[in-house]
């Protein structure tokens, strides 16, 4: 889920430039999300917003991640997409 704080947003357009899916748009001096469903919550917009106006929880839409992090409650060590095994099986 991604939210834009309209009060903080300066409409600089950085989110529009960095979004890999082209779902961030700036109109009338403020950013908004075109299509929530198409957002993969990669977090590029939130990380690169100079006004700190975008709140997005960076998450990976991947079965392995969900099984490891949600079901088995294993902490991801950042080795790959939610996968921390020694084989280093990566997804995506």
């Amino acid at each position: 889920m991604i939210t834009v704080d309209q009060k903080k947003c300066t409409g600089c357009g950085q989110c529009e430039i960095v979004c890999p899916h082209g779902i961030m748009k700036v109109s009338d001096g403020t950013a908004f999300v075109l299509d929530d469903d198409r957002c993969v919550t990669c977090g590029a917009c939130g990380l690169n917003c100079p006004a700190d106006a975008i709140l997005v929880k960076q998450q990976t839409g991947c079965l392995v991640t969900i099984i490891k992090e949600d079901i088995l409650k294993m902490k991801c060590d950042g080795q790959s997409c939610g996968n921390s095994n020694s084989d280093g099986q990566a997804c995506g």
Binding site: M1, Q59, C62, L63, T65, G92
Partner: peptide, 13 residues
């Protein structure tokens, strides 16, 4: 879902 670049965490969950 992990292979595709269009999957969304909430939907996959």
């Amino acid at each position: 879902t992990g292979v595709s670049p269009i999957s969304n965490y909430d939907n996959v969950r």
